[in-house]
């Protein structure tokens, strides 16, 4: 049986590729702008929002997208008021997950055991079991996110690298930051389908970190990050097809191996330069 003869594999390649493209590009800026933990927090929100959406009789995706965008806008509005708030943030997001656990148990008791795995697929991804509608939504939003990001990439890069000069030159910093937050939220919501709410780092942050280890040039880095994200997802799917291991584990695992390799390579080249 050929791999691409199966519809669910074609769906996974298509949606996974588009989502990975967006995750790699947006993730590059997430790492550059030091907003890694925003992405993590949004992943937690996505879990609770998705289950809340299902409980309220809406669509899972509607819940995931809605809650992520709302929270991203809220974080953006509160602004980066100083650091050292990690305790407050940690307590809030532990509570958000606690509420997610509540929704999960309400949902499972309401719908009998058959739906007990819904939470697992939100937490750890369900790329091999996407519904046709999810494939369309995932692919289109993935491509749209990537396009919007590329359109704003130049001023966003300027703003991220040297905010003061950028503002002085008339870059609309608030609007741009808000727009970027929305892009992050949409990307997180998409990635939940591919690798799950808990493993978002593996798709959004790890490829970007690899890219930053390999190149300091921004455009090269962006291309590398997107390329690595897509490659890791596709490769993960191929491996998952032949040996029955969870696809999300393979995707994050491959990304992690690449990260270790790139880290070593950077060390070696630094030692080489010193010698």
């Amino acid at each position: 049986m050929s791999m691409l003869g199966l519809e669910f594999m074609r769906n996974a390649f298509m949606a996974g590729g588009c989502i990975a493209l967006a995750a790699g590009l947006v993730g590059y800026f997430v790492v550059l702008r030091n907003q890694v933990f925003t992405a993590d927090a949004l992943g937690h929100v996505a879990f609770t929002g998705g289950l809340g959406g299902v409980l309220a009789g809406l669509n899972l995706l509607a819940g995931v997208f809605g809650s992520c965008i709302a929270v991203a806008l809220a974080i953006g509005a509160l602004g980066g008021r100083g650091r050292g708030r990690d305790i407050a943030i940690g307590t809030v997001f532990a509570w958000v997950l606690g509420v997610g656990a509540l929704f999960l148990s309400l949902y499972t008791t309401a719908r009998s055991a058959a739906s007990g795995t819904l939470g697992v697929s939100v937490l750890f991804g369900s790329i091999l079991g996407l519904q046709p509608a999810q494939v369309v939504v995932g692919s289109l939003t993935g491509i749209a996110t990537a396009v919007v990001l590329l359109l704003i990439a130049r001023p966003l890069l300027f703003l991220s690298v040297d905010p003061e000069v950028a503002v002085a030159r008339g870059v609309p910093s608030r609007a741009l930051s808000a727009l970027f937050f929305v892009l992050v939220a949409v990307t997180v919501a998409e990635s939940v389908q591919a690798v799950g709410a808990l493993l978002i780092f593996g798709l959004m942050v790890t490829p970007a970190a690899v890219a930053q280890n390999l190149s300091t040039r921004p455009w090269v880095g962006m291309a590398l990050s997107a390329g690595i994200a897509v490659a890791v997802v596709w490769l993960g799917l191929v491996v998952a097809f032949y040996i029955a291991l969870p696809a999300s584990f393979l995707i994050t695992g491959l990304a992690f191996v690449l990260y270790l390799a790139s880290h070593l390579a950077r060390r070696m080249s630094r030692i080489g330069r010193l010698a």
Binding site: L199, P246, S248
Partner: peptide
Amino acid sequence: GSILAFSLG
């Protein structure tokens, strides 16, 4: 972040 994602996976 990469380590955490890998570990949960």
